[in-house]
Design a protein around this nucleic acid. Structure first.
Length: 212
DNA sequence: CCTGTGTAGCTTCTTACCTCA
DNA sequence: GTTGAGGTAAGAAGCTACACA
């Protein structure tokens, strides 16, 4: 490390910092979770997802309709115009979606009992509730990743600017130093907050040493 | 106590389908 | 009417934790 060099590098960590509880079973968090040590979005991680206001026209189709069809509520209808070769495609009703969203805000994962009771309330299969939660977690994570990426980009940009500024300042100081053997007493040095903290801390230490 | 196996639940990626501009 | 983009339910693969023999 060169004399007087101010290291402005900053590590931007990736890890886990969200308020969202991860499954208790997992002792390690997924590696791709972005960790910023402060809150990035104000609504506490509960992303607003389009609730499909137009979901009234719910349909359900498949030759395997029997599997789900026996369970579906009267709100579902089968699109008989389509042949049964495609795979089943369910659209949740507005009510189902909002209830799922509500419980997702409370818990991002469900234990089997919660899953079962929610499925009963919604007149869906537990597997469908499970899938919905899986997809919902994935969507939340994706959105959060996008938000975090944007934030990191901005961070990177501002740090680059700061780094350039400090490099320039350092160069100026060096050229001043080369100009005369002693640094000017009244020269003004601007520094970032962390550098200032280090400077003042070291000054205190020096003062203590001088006293004793 | 260690090890292999089965199971459940999760993440991630992908596919198929629907809606809407 | 057609098309492309975006959203989403569901399938599949792979991983991990846990229970149990």
């Amino acid at each position: 490390m060169e004399e007087g060099y101010c290291d402005t590098r900053l590590g931007l960590g990736l890890g886990g910092a969200s308020n969202e509880p991860w499954p208790q079973k997992r002792k390690e968090k997924p590696a791709v979770r972005l960790d910023l040590s402060f809150t990035l979005c104000q609504n506490d991680g509960a992303m607003d997802i389009d609730h499909r206001d137009k979901a009234e026209g719910v349909y359900f189709k498949s030759e395997e309709d029997e599997e789900y069809g026996n369970q579906r509520s009267d709100e579902y209808s089968v699109d008989s115009s389509v042949d049964g070769s495609g795979r089943k495609k369910l659209r949740l009703t507005k009510e189902q979606s909002s209830l799922l969203e509500e419980s997702f805000k409370r818990h991002t994962t469900l234990n089997p009992a919660q899953k079962h009771s929610l499925a009963e309330r919604l007149n869906l299969k537990t597997r469908q509730v499970e899938v919905w939660f899986q997809n919902r977690r994935a969507r939340t994570k994706l959105k959060q990743t996008e938000v975090d990426c944007e934030f990191l980009k901005k961070c990177c940009e501002s740090l680059s600017n700061e780094n350039r500024r400090l490099q320039k300042e350092l160069q100026e100081l060096r050229s001043q130093k080369n100009g005369r053997s002693q640094p000017a007493k009244d020269s003004t040095i601007t520094a970032c907050s962390s550098c200032m903290e280090r400077i003042t801390t070291s000054q205190r230490n020096v003062a203590v040493v001088h006293k004793s």
